[in-house]
Design a protein around this nucleic acid. Sequence first.
DNA 1: TTGAAAGCGGTACCAG
DNA 2: CTGGTACCGCTTTCAA
Lengths: 330, 330
Amino acid sequence: MNLEEVARRAKVSTATVSRVLNNASLVKSTTRTRVMRAVEQLKYQPNLHARSLAGVKSRSIGVIVSNIENPFFLDIYKAVEAGAHAEGYEVIMANTDYRSEQLLTSIRLMIGRRVAGLAAIVSEMDADVIAELNEHQIPVVFYDVGAPLQNVTNIRVNYRRGMKKLIDYLYSLGHRRIGFVGHHATLGPIHERANVVLESVARYPDLVVKTGADVDSLEGGRRATRALLSADSGLTAIVCVNDLMAVGAMREIRERGLRIPEDISVTGFDNVKLSQFCYPALTTVHIPRNQIGQNICDVLILNTNTILEQEILIDPELVLRDSTGPTLRR
Amino acid sequence: MNLEEVARRAKVSTATVSRVLNNASLVKSTTRTRVMRAVEQLKYQPNLHARSLAGVKSRSIGVIVSNIENPFFLDIYKAVEAGAHAEGYEVIMANTDYRSEQLLTSIRLMIGRRVAGLAAIVSEMDADVIAELNEHQIPVVFYDVGAPLQNVTNIRVNYRRGMKKLIDYLYSLGHRRIGFVGHHATLGPIHERANVVLESVARYPDLVVKTGADVDSLEGGRRATRALLSADSGLTAIVCVNDLMAVGAMREIRERGLRIPEDISVTGFDNVKLSQFCYPALTTVHIPRNQIGQNICDVLILNTNTILEQEILIDPELVLRDSTGPTLRR
DNA sequence: TTGAAAGCGGTACCAG
DNA sequence: CTGGTACCGCTTTCAA
């Protein structure tokens, strides 16, 4: 089923059919309806590959995320999709599961598809990946990683500030032995969230921090917490790298017969919807996913980046709920 | 950046470059390496649109879901993706948010992309959508909807049985006033899950059922439950159409100062991971998402459907946890 | 207002 | 083993 068949049926040339379909230049209304009817009858759907090959400007952007099971990434994806659809763009999603070879594969796939722009919301990132991306013209937005470069925009959240607020708050509540639950990708020497927690030991000499990590999931949060509490039963607070893992952490704590927050406080990060619906509701730090998604669309589709090589900085704020409280233990 | 540039640099023809890239027919190893080097240096990525246009068999399948925010759909998607990747296929995802115009749009997009197969995991479905799908040759798998047709496979879960088990269990616990929380798409006259609940009134003459609905989300579950309890504070159990909404329901119940399950029992459906991590852990019905995803791949990629127009039936089983218990109220 | 034809970037068949 | 070339389906001048 192709243009030619439609053209034959409508007794016009393929050029005319094409014109009608792209409601472009003047076509006599009688021929137009004739063509429309043929299209209708044949249930013709244009071959999108041929269309993009023929040199039309690409009408799709790519979004690569580290873990689509984490609502944080899903929210950003959905925000991008909403913005893209509003401009008549399609978005192609890819998931890396924090594996950097998969990131490379995904990037190549996107390039192969000739997307108009690419957003990489990932923690794993090699220098050569960035280099490869730079070879191709394509506009890119990085979140949370990546160096400023030609035609790449960096969106970063000031995790440092967010984490600091969290730690200060816990310290003021009397917590002195804190466990940090991360996932493997957050434990590299580059990663702000874990680092801030570790560094706060310098600011508070009487503070003790233990760190643990597992995969980024409910299960992972639970396992990491189990390991942490088994190794040090004196912890009075568990700081999690994100809300998802925090919900897993709470599960483990409850299972040990401990109360939250009376025995142990728990904090998350991101402020995903789930953090309001779990029990107890989670103290966390809000990351504006919608805004991030919108920024991505602005840069990739509207080209609203007045300055290329731009950096968008977001200052996250604390959200106090019921999973944190003063220590009753010493 | 195209084949020709690579060919020129390697001093061979485009045909040869193509051969090397598709590690096909015999190519002298010295030329092969020469080509490889050119590809490497130019960081050449083949244009996938051109490639599929050139008539190679499509290496991608489409998956359309009603609500990607509901982990149930996400799990199926991921299962399909895993199976597809194992066979070297890509999967393109589309989300309808339960809107049937969006379903039509998505289907057309998939056809336009010339996917090798299409899975529609959706509740919303018009007859004309099915008809349109039937015009094109493409193999299709429906979940939960759709009539048997040429080259379409239907996967269905015996919701009837699952729901019956749930209701029987609650009845045996002493519950006589039950609220059902659905989302709009489940309240049509076609929909098994809601129907079974309604029909059970015939089996148990002293049973009273109230139904409510909202959007398929945590929030929706909460709002629907709020409406239900405001209208009838005598309900002793809330049966939810899925786990996501059940978690929302539990939130509302707690907020009213009621205990689960002492005051009100709650049930979910699907047995998503979250149902084990919420508090209290949710009594639910297990739907094997991995198996469904695998079935989809089998049919769409491996063509393991010996009989076309096949129907795969799944019998779901009850999972008892902590959100249900005997009624203490009358 | 419409048609003919030249690509777009690959693949694969046919010669050599 | 390698090159030439005819498509694949659509868009877009250029002419008529």
